[in-house]
């Protein structure tokens, strides 16, 4: 009946992951890098849920639950680090924290 296949979701998941990856590589603002990381995790989540739904197995969904937990933790710690960094260097740009370079 439906023409959307699990593969559609897979491609979408990969696109999300790719876009997030692009952000991580391309952006200099660490806040945006963190956000892009979240997007990558989201891509993985989509893939896992669609796998879980296709194979009628709950394990994938449960994994998504754990990924979300980890993501939330990661954001909290990441942002705390960022704030600490900002206090020291007055910048959130990645090129400003290259300590070894100069």
């Amino acid at each position: 009946m439906e023409s959307v296949t699990p593969q559609h979701f897979l491609v979408l998941a990969f696109l999300l992951f790719g876009v997030g990856f692009l952000g991580v590589v391309l952006r200099r603002n660490l806040l945006l890098v963190l956000m892009s990381l979240e997007l990558m995790l989201n891509g993985v989540n989509v893939a896992l849920v669609s796998f879980s739904r296709t194979s009628l197995n709950l394990d994938g969904s449960l994994f998504v639950f754990f990924i979300m937990t980890v993501a939330a933790t990661e954001v909290a710690v990441g942002l705390a680090l960022l704030v600490a960094l900002f206090k020291k260097r007055q910048s959130v740009f990645s090129e400003d924290i290259s300590l070894l370079k100069n």
Binding site: M1, E2, S3, T5, H8, V11, F14, L15, R53, T54
Partner: peptide, 19 residues
């Protein structure tokens, strides 16, 4: 990678689309 995925994942394969 997306192109490869599109090539080999069988999108539009009607046999896969029965949820």
């Amino acid at each position: 990678l997306v192109i490869l995925l599109l090539q080999f994942s069988g999108i539009g394969d009607a046999s896969l689309s029965n949820w």
